[in-house]
């Protein structure tokens, strides 16, 4: 299989020197993200996110299954990331690369293990029936910063998703189709987002949202996941050159600002989409969901 083209020596020297002089090749500021765009699909739970030339599509689906025997009160929640050769010919089918493994582990830690989705609410009949929520992440185009975009797309799709309404009468479970009852949203607890920092030089140069070229040249990177209340879910700095503790503290505060921006953007897009779907304000009457 072909390898990813590595940047040439000249490119390497040029980009690194430019960074040392305070410039980025695409003219952005060091803490500036590329244009982030989010589109929801016609169906519930489909999010299409583009950040510059990186494009990710996420689809959420739900079905009723039996829960794991050791966790009878929990539903099942899985995130699947499989990088196809569509993103780059260097990715092979059925052979996970390091990028893919790291991406799925980070998403697992950020979204699943931070309890963003309340899995207990997915339980229908203890030990017998539960919802299985499945998130499929497709990378359509890879131009750096997969982690931040993926996390944003996964959170957006999950918050947009509606699962079929159910009722239990006398131990008999009924799952309603969309034609019978309006689907209901998931029980969502908080929205964590990832912010990845790339370091250059001796670790003194810090940039946000590196593109593929910058990603190939960085000396180390650090991903911080947190929600807009400043609660940190995880920090991952996997090897690379050491970075001063003060820099990391500064990174955390920059990350908080970025996460607040992501949060606002997502809330705004969700509100727009809800308004678009709720033509004539009839959705509230269709819903059989109770107020919490």
């Amino acid at each position: 299989m072909p390898r990813e083209a590595e940047p040439s020596l000249n490119e390497r020297a040029f980009v690194v020197q430019a960074l040392q002089e305070g410039l980025r090749v695409d003219g952005r500021a060091f803490d500036q993200y590329r244009q982030l765009e989010l589109k929801f699909g016609e169906q519930y739970g489909v999010a299409d996110v583009t950040l510059g030339k990186t494009r990710i599509l996420v689809k959420v689906s739900a079905e009723v299954t039996t829960p794991y025997t050791d966790r009878p009160f929990d539903g099942i929640f899985t995130i699947t990331t499989e990088l196809s050769p569509m993103a780059s010919p260097a990715f092979e089918v059925n052979r996970p690369t390091e990028t893919e493994v790291l991406l799925s582990r980070l998403l697992e830690k950020t979204v699943r293990r931070s309890n963003a989705l309340d899995t207990e609410s997915l339980c229908l009949v203890a030990g017998q029936k539960c919802w299985s929520i499945r998130v499929d992440l497709h990378v359509l185009s890879h131009d750096g910063n997969l982690i931040d975009v993926s996390c944003f797309a996964v959170v957006a799709a999950l918050r947009h998703f509606r699962k079929p309404d159910t009722s239990i009468e006398g131990g008999h479970l009924t799952v309603y189709t969309p034609a019978e009852r309006e689907p209901v949203p998931l029980s969502w607890l908080h929205s964590p987002f990832c912010v990845t920092f790339s370091f250059y030089g001796e670790g003194e140069i810090t940039i946000l949202d590196a593109n593929l070229l910058e990603e190939q040249l960085r000396v180390s990177s650090c991903t911080i996941s947190l929600n807009r209340h400043g609660e940190i879910c995880q920090i991952a700095k996997l090897g690379g050159t050491p970075v001063e503790a003060a820099t990391l503290l500064q990174c955390a505060s920059v990350a908080l600002n970025k996460v607040k921006e992501f949060s606002t953007l997502l809330d705004q897009k969700l509100a727009e989409d809800a308004k678009r779907r709720n033509k004539g304000g009839l959705l509230a009457e269709l819903s059989a969901e109770n107020e919490r």
Partner: peptide, 9 residues
Amino acid sequence: ENEYVNAKV
């Protein structure tokens, strides 16, 4: 999508 059937994976 078929509105009258719940989609399965």
